[in-house]
Design a protein around this nucleic acid. Structure first.
Lengths: 204, 204
DNA sequence: CAAATATACTGAACGGTGTTCAGAAAATCC
DNA sequence: GGATTTTCTGAACACCGTTCAGTATATTTG
């Protein structure tokens, strides 16, 4: 049945066409400001068509999230490759924060937006999200085996390190550091100083 | 002119009536899900009336934010009163995180929602927000004077400590810790362990 | 190849949103 | 008590996510 193969292929192509447009528009204008109608316009289909491929706008978000996490994982695999677990942990930290600062709208979709796991319980797969998380936990595991971290529980270590990174990025992305009345360069500098300092303090 | 005094008073009462309803509904249902029409219904006025007192929905958010920051400041003033700067810093940290966990929707309005300073440049007053921030920076200042902190720059210290607290709360509020596959109690425990550990490591 | 069936797509319609504004209602002034 | 100012209303506008009867296209059948 070559004909149904082609149909399946066309269906996947259509899904990709939609999600590519959605990703571009989410990043350009943000999730909330991007409407199904706009996406439909961009790919020159009617709004209803999108619902033949994705159940609702949330499912579009999940798909884009998946792409974003895949992108982040690639970044880790490119930038955090040191054989030394401790050095790799440092690389991951900087990689993570730089990713967030460089792609604030992607970061928004991945870690700030209210949507995925707060309602959808079973959606807890978090597709490529856990792969990124594992990249961190594996490295932390190695560090702890070699006694390079001042933590006693690797889960607490992971939670702490992630929180510090996320705190820095998300306060920056949401412009909350404005209260400090510093220039953009100064804030950027201090974010990196914060990571540096934090890494120093958690090192055994 | 007693009559215009009364008018002014009535105007302020009306503003309070609106903002009280808005606060309650923002906390109950969240900012996005609360509509101007719903608020109008609740206070038994027409939707248009609200626009006579607040320019748009964002201005309602600013007003509610102001109340929320005032509430947080009160919490600090109640829970972080130690004469010892270091102990006070610890109290602030726990106070902050507990506030966020206890009032996730308020915390959302204050630190996560996209709205205030990203567009409104001059709104950078952040009314009572800076008062909360000052409560932190003042304490950090005292700590550093007495050489109780391992940081060399008090601004980096403030940025780091705030980021850690915010990271913990906001990842929890947005359910991102679900990827760790822990029970609610375990997460809650580890959040507190994280603060404890963090405070230990930054202490001189 | 033509008719019948199955698939893909459309776009109007539904109930919602924030916001505006002409006009009605109420309060104040003279 | 009539004119004027202030306050309030609610229909209207342009959007939103989502649904679904109906049309257009493609495939299968006779």
């Amino acid at each position: 049945m070559g004909i149904s193969d082609r149909k399946e292929r066309e269906k996947q192509e259509m899904k990709k066409l939609i999600i590519d447009a959605a990703l571009r528009m989410f990043v350009e204008d943000g999730y909330e400001k991007t409407s199904i109608r706009n996406i439909a316009d961009r790919i020159e289909y009617s709004p209803g068509t999108i619902y033949l491929y994705y159940k609702d706008k949330d499912e579009l978000l999940y798909a884009v999230q998946k792409e974003a996490f895949s992108k982040m994982l690639e970044t880790f695999q490119r930038e955090a490759t040191s054989r030394s677990p401790w050095k790799r942990l440092e690389q991951i930290a900087y990689s993570y924060v730089n990713f967030g600062i460089k792609h604030p709208d992607l970061y928004d979709l991945m870690f700030i937006i209210r949507a995925p796991m707060n309602t959808a319980e079973e959606k807890g797969d978090w597709d490529n999200g856990d792969a990124c998380f594992n990249y961190l936990t594996d490295t932390i595991g190695e560090c702890m085996e070699k006694g390079l971290l001042r933590y006693s529980d690797p889960r607490v270590a992971a939670l702490s390190i992630w929180s510090m990174g996320h705190g820095l990025v998300s306060l920056q992305v949401r412009c909350r550091f404005k209260v400090m009345q510093l220039s953009d360069d100064q804030v950027s500098n201090m974010i990196h100083l914060s990571i540096k300092e934090f890494l120093r303090t958690i090192k055994a």
